[in-house]
Design a protein around this nucleic acid. Structure first.
Lengths: 200, 200
DNA sequence: TGCATTCTGTAACGAGCAGCACAAATATGG
DNA sequence: CCATATTTGTGCTGCTCGTTACAGAATGCA
């Protein structure tokens, strides 16, 4: 292993600090000064490690995405379509509200990509969001094939419904809604989900 | 009326142009150059008319809010709680998706206030959003008093549910979801809503 | 016609932005 | 202990941002 002066900071910890900043201020609202002071390094170190602001954000997004993807995998492992919906929505509540300062409230996708003038960034964020919706859709297609869902239901619509609900709940969390409040909201969503897939 | 040189642009049309820019790029993403070129005036004219960027945005927000409020009033006029919910969600679809270029897809609240590092701005946006939720809540309280809703239901939770749903659908519209797709989502939301307020 | 008033266009201001050049510092391999 | 490689801190760059000073143009009023 060839080596020079060792890096004085942990790349992963730096990404976590940067994530907090992007989460709270958005992509454009987060300045390089905000990022370097949050990480505790000088800008040349940051540029040497990540290239530029866009690449840094993409690395942060990738890190966030890995966690969301593993969350989604635990969701998709639920036995029935209704269990999938319940695990998903209740999980979103835990991720988005009352996190005890570990992460900002809400969801990085909503807070960083929603109002961004740079199309590269918002496209990238939306790509990741769409991926999660596709995972739900695929799971519901499988459920329909397995007879767990009526043949008449459209998996894509179900996935879109849950995604919209999750995003809306994340937005409310970022505006101060508490976990119990959002859990009550999730329960309405689940009641209607259940009513929809089990027509009387 | 004392007057000097007459203003060469219409204030309301200017606000509409500015609204489009804020809607597409967010508050921080919209530069004064973006705004002045979209309006077709020079910056001193804009500053003379509106003060500064923050005040311009607040004027835009007020204008948007007036339309949303009149939309809400037509929603609240629906005869039953379920009709209110249906009118609300279907109306959101019409406002947010396939607008034919008249407005950008989605909703100004989501696109401009969600990822903004300036707390003054996001607070202002959230204040307006919360106002609409409160209107729904009040309407549902009235519906419960009238016996249109079961006494066990919590009007605030219902309002929160519909608001989350509306916001989530607006986000999906901004990502390219079509009106028919969103209408199908709204119908799921209503199915559950109907099941919730009329427990079998 | 002259004066007061208001708007318009040109051109600039300081501040803050993303990004980088460079030399000192700290590691490894011979 | 020297050569090489990599990171660190200082300080800067060019650019874009929001905002404004100022002079000229267009109105109403006397």
């Amino acid at each position: 292993m060839v080596a020079g002066r060792p890096r004085a900071f942990c790349t992963d910890k730096a990404l976590d600090s940067a994530m907090q900043v992007f989460w709270r201020k958005g992509y454009e609202g987060a300045s390089m000064v905000d990022l370097t002071t949050a990480i505790g390094i000088n800008s040349p170190s940051l540029y040497a490690a990540f290239g530029n602001k866009e690449n840094l954000f993409k690395a942060v997004l990738e890190r966030y995405d890995a966690r969301r993807k593993s969350f989604m995998e635990s969701v998709l492992a639920a036995p029935t379509a209704l269990d999938v919906a319940r695990t998903f929505l209740h999980g979103i509540v835990d991720l988005a509200a009352d996190t005890g300062g570990k992460t900002p409230p809400g969801c990085l996708y909503m807070q960083s990509g929603q109002s961004c003038s740079d199309a590269h960034i918002s496209d990238e964020v939306n790509k990741h969001r769409a991926e999660k919706e596709a995972m739900l859709c695929e799971r519901f297609e499988q459920a329909r094939r397995a007879g767990d869902l009526p043949a008449a239901t459209d998996p894509a619509t179900l996935a879109r419904y849950l995604t919209a609900m999750g995003n809306g709940m994340a937005v409310q969390a970022s505006c101060g809604a508490s976990a119990p409040e959002l859990r009550a909201v999730a329960d309405i969503a689940l009641a209607s989900f259940s009513a929809f897939i089990n027509p009387a």
